[in-house]
Write a protein that binds this DNA or RNA. Structure first.
Length: 607
RNA sequence: GGGCCGAUAGCUCAGUCAGGGAGAGCGACGGCCUCUUAAGCCGUCGGUCGGGGGUUCAAAUCCCUCUCGGCCCGCCA
């Protein structure tokens, strides 16, 4: 069959049956199909997890959002879904971070915290390491708090778990005891995956915390099934390219004091939470995932979750790396773009390598805007965006209601609905990941009704509007340039202009050509030639007399002409006076929009 | 060495599952509004769809192969 036959039919809800295979325009629908095919018990459990050793960065929210989209699809299909997220904070401290972050999102470099104190705690569980910034119970608790902030910031509601708390509660004790009771089976299985494990060797699937020196050590010698304890000798442990010395202490640990090696900890989590679906980065895909599946099925009698391998993204062309400083946090990104756009980035095809370029964030926001337009346009309408990225209406139809951040829908918009209370309650439940079965239908109806009137100002234009702090001037310029329809409701105008501060921060951070700002303070120190000054004084008169933008713009040229100077010199002087820069926006209309008194005085260089 | 994933315009990316016209935005370039300054409008340039081979009437799309990149096969997650 070919598309040229013209009888492919309309894609209903983005879905199309071909034989026994369902095509889905949105990847999360395909994953949800596979989860449903398992016939899971309710609630369906979606899990994610991160080791919080470094500053939690934008890559970590990828894990949370991938799970969120699948959870959302399943919820719309009337499943009860629980999304859990673990902070694997019993992992040992393996290296000294290059920098830390306060709970307020400020970076702290190595000269700002006690490196030695961390160094003396290498090898200990993160939750046993004192917080170098002093605000939390432990370094692990601090990092976990940051991770939680990041997940919250993108609007993914999860049941958050500390691995240490889980161990202390004995959540993994049964699995650990089960595995330790049959070391030969464990060794035989793991030997297939790890050269370092010998099927006839002395490997034990548990790493006790030394009761003497506190490191997460190896050295298990035996397991006592009656007391559910291991005997161990504290041994050296390898951490990257360094060795952390064990103390040689001979001791006994019970199964809440220590941890499972990751390859076992992961299946233990599946068993404990009864996980049905879990996304993970490609680093796991060929490592712990294959062994984890076998451990789960053959040793624990647990069906592994449905997997989703997602690609890592690069930041400005290079891998995210704490040590090289090439990181960006979710919080930083959310200063630059609205949460909807960031959520959109992680709604795109997961298996594709892509670059997140800060300098090109405007392109991401443009793409989100096309995606949103495609949703409102619908599958049957003509497509002004043609084949542009993000503009496929079938994908937008499925994904947009999940991508749109329900927390950002203005209350004034819901109050315009036929039944505001119902819509508010729906949005609250969706935002809290606890929707009623009919909520997605109500959400879609609201979006296609009231929210259809939302307005987006182009991101680069929003950056330009950021040149002035004054909300009334921003709105006036946006209206004049046709970015705010006359009949747009007030909430839509406010929502559109919310973008300005983000885009302004982007222009500021990248120092790009949209990075100009009105110098409202002291008169900039500008040398102005006498003829240019005279020309500017005449422009000032036009402004003082209430000339509109076009009149001021014309006067800039005409005054230059009358005084025998190049228009370019008049413009440059103007840009220097108002922006401290030698270029800027179209000057006449801009000056006409600012408060007249200030403009007149500045043109006369009085203040 | 073995494996998984990827490669489409200068940049960021759609399109690949289901074969049929190579696309978008940005950038660049040119033009327009009494006006060199765009944040508006119009237009142009820009691609052997990483290379090669195969299947087919037809391949960015399916198959094989090679190259390059990321990751895994140690630790850790």
């Amino acid at each position: 069959m070919s598309a040229g036959d013209g009888d492919d039919g309309v894609r209903v809800g983005g879905d199309d049956e071909r034989g026994d295979r369902a095509y889905h325009a949105f990847w999360a629908d395909e994953v949800a199909d596979r989860v449903e095919a398992r016939d899971p018990e309710e609630p369906v459990v979606v899990k994610g997890g991160v080791s919080p050793s470094g500053v939690p960065h934008a890559g970590h929210v990828n894990e949370a959002l991938r799970g969120y989209y699948v959870a959302s699809v399943l919820r719309e299909r009337d499943h009860d879904v629980r999304q859990v997220f673990t902070s694997d904070d019993r992992d040992p401290l393996r290296s000294i971070p290059y920098r830390l972050m306060t709970l307020d999102g400020e970076y702290v470099e190595r000269d700002g915290f006690d490196v030695g104190a961390l160094g003396r705690n290498l090898g200990r569980p993160l939750t046993d390491v004192p917080d170098p910034l002093g605000c939390c119970d432990s370094f692990g608790a601090h990092q976990t708090a940051l991770l939680r902030q990041a997940v919250d910031a993108v609007g993914v509601p999860v049941d958050f778990y500390s691995a240490t708390a889980l161990y202390e509660d004995g959540a993994f004790a049964d699995v650990a005891a089960d595995l330790l009771a049959r070391p030969a089976e464990v060794r035989a299985l793991l030997a297939e995956f790890q050269d370092s494990v010998d099927a006839d060797g002395d490997y034990w699937p548990f790493r006790p915390r030394c009761e003497s020196c506190g490191i997460v050590t190896g050295g298990v010698r035996s397991f006592d099934a009656d007391t559910r304890t291991v005997r161990y000798v504290c041994e050296d442990i390898e951490a990257g390219d360094r060795t952390i010395e064990g103390c040689g202490h001979e001791g006994v640990a019970d199964l809440t004091e220590g941890k499972l090696p990751w390859r076992f900890e992961w299946p233990a989590q599946w068993a404990h939470f009864r996980v049905d679906f879990e996304p993970f980065g490609k680093d796991h895909a060929e490592g712990s995932w294959p062994s984890g599946q076998e451990i789960a099925r053959d040793l624990l009698d647990v069906e592994p979750p449905e997997p989703l391998v997602y690609e890592w993204f690069t930041l400005d062309g290079a891998a995210l790396s704490s040590s090289s400083g090439n990181v960006i946090t979710a919080g930083e990104l959310l200063e630059l773009v609205e949460s909807d756009a960031l959520r959109y980035f992680f709604a795109k095809e997961p298996r594709k390598q892509r670059d997140l370029a800060v300098a090109s964030l405007d392109g991401l926001v443009d793409e989100f805007d096309r995606f949103e337009r495609a949703y409102f346009r619908g599958v049957d309408a003509a497509d002004p965006d043609q084949g542009a990225a993000g503009a496929d209406p079938a994908t937008a139809e499925r994904a947009y209601p999940y991508v749109l951040d329900p927390r950002r829908v203005p209350a004034a918009a819901t109050s315009a609905a036929d039944d505001p209370g119902t819509v508010d309650a729906t949005l609250d439940r969706v935002a809290a990941a606890d929707p009623d079965p009919a909520d997605f239908g109500r959400l879609r109806a609201f979006l296609e009704g009231v929210f259809r009137e939302r307005v987006r100002v182009p991101y680069r234009f929003a950056a330009v509007l950021g040149m002035t702090e004054r909300a009334d001037v921003r709105e006036e310029i946006a209206r004049r340039e046709g970015h705010l329809p006359d009949d747009a409701p007030a909430w839509a105008v406010d929502l559109a202009l919310d973008r300005v501060d983000h885009a302004r921060a982007w222009a500021d951070r990248t120092g790009n050509r949209f990075d100009y700002r009105v110098e409202r303070g002291a008169l900039p120190d500008v040398d102005v030639d006498g003829d240019v000054a005279a020309a500017l004084a005449e422009v000032a008169s036009v402004v003082a007399n209430g000339g509109d933008g076009e009149a001021v713009q014309g006067e800039l040229y005409e005054a230059a002409d009358r005084h025998g100077v190049e228009a370019a010199d008049v413009f440059e002087a103007g840009y220097r006076l108002f922006f401290g820069d030698d270029e800027g926006p179209r000057l006449g209309p801009f000056l006409a929009d600012l408060d007249r008194e200030f403009v007149v005085a500045r043109l006369r260089r009085e203040r």
